[in-house]
Every structure is written in structure tokens, then in C-alpha cells.
Amino acid sequence: MNLFRLLGDMTHLLSIIVLLLKINATRSCRGVSLKTQELYAIVFVCRYLDLFTNFISLYNTVMKVIFLGSTFTIIYWMRFHKVIRVTYDRDQDTFRYQFLIIPCLLLSLILNSEFTVMEVLWTFSIYLEAVAILPQLVLLQRTNNIDNLTGNYIFLLGSYRALYILNWIYRFLTEPNYRQYLVWISGIVQTIVYIDFFYYYIRSWKNNEKLSLPA
């Protein structure tokens, strides 16, 4: 494991902690897309099926359990917590799951490195992760008043993806025979999805203004 990978994972972890803290402290999930959280839950479940079959390291196992547990906690709060669920922007969070899930599923059936249930589901999770942030970005654009923590959450998620690209470059240069084309291409697509957001996030930070995305 190299520094970029570790920093990437820690940034990912931090993004989730920021979201948990925001929702818990303010008792509000305003501006948070339940659709994106549920897509992440699908991503983590499909990818981490190997928790039961393939032990890589204690670090990997612990992180997988944390990602699963924290995502399901957020979903539980947004759906069932008696105070928090009332603050969910149900009417604005209208992105349709099937527009993302079906193409990713079809693509994973065609483009995979091995046609087995585990491998196809793993590949599906890679493709779905690349686009899972889209409902959140759409909701953000619709919500005029973006609070800082929601903005920081998305910024940290985007940073995690950028650090993973550096991790792949490092691994490519240091590990013989290391290559994973499907992951690389999906990861680059995923990072590109954030570029527009990054632009407005950095601009609002430099100008000391509240973040808002143009419609």
C-alpha cells in the first residue's frame, strides 16, 4: 500500500464522517441525496461480497465493514429517524435509479474480466460507483442554499477519487504486471464527473462566498 492509496482511503472515510456528523449534529439531512446513498449501498454490497471469500488484510476488512455500516446508518436515518426523515428533500431528489443501474448492469455483463457471479457483481459495482454521485450533484444544483458540510462532503469524495488515480500511477510505475483497465477507465470517468463541481467549489472558497451551482 502506498501513500496515495492510504490518503485516498482516509479522504473517503473522512467524507463519510463529515456526512454522519452533519446529519447527526444538525438533525437534518437537507441537501443530501438518499438516492446517491442507496446507490453507494448497492456498490458496497456488490463489491464487498468477497468479505466472506477472500481475505486480503485486516485493514481492508475493517474499512469494508465501516463503509457498509456507515452508509446503511445514513440510509436508516434518512428513511426512518423520526426527526431526520422529515428534513429529507424528497420532492427534489428525483433522479431515477434505473437510468444508472440498468446501463451499468448491462455493461458489466458485457465488459468484465471473468464471467462469474462474483466478478460481474464486482465489475457492476465499479461502474455504478463512477456515476453514483450524479443524483447528489443534481440535488445540489436544485438546492440553492448549499450548506458547507454538504459541499465539503462532495469535495472530499472527489479528492478521494483523484488520489486513487495517483495511487494507480504509482502502482503502475512500481509493480510489474500491474494493470486494471476497467477500474482505471471507470475511475477516470468518475473523477471527470466532479470537475465541474470542483470548479465552483474552489471559486466560492477563493471569493469567500457561499457555494452555489448554476442551473
Partner: peptide
């Protein structure tokens, strides 16, 4: 695995 895909990342 086939194609050199690694599963050691998160």
C-alpha cells in the same frame, strides 16, 4: 484473476 484485474483496493 483474468485480465490482471486486482481486487485489493477498496
Amino acid at each position: 484473476t483474468a485480465g490482471g484485474e486486482h481486487h485489493d483496493e477498496l
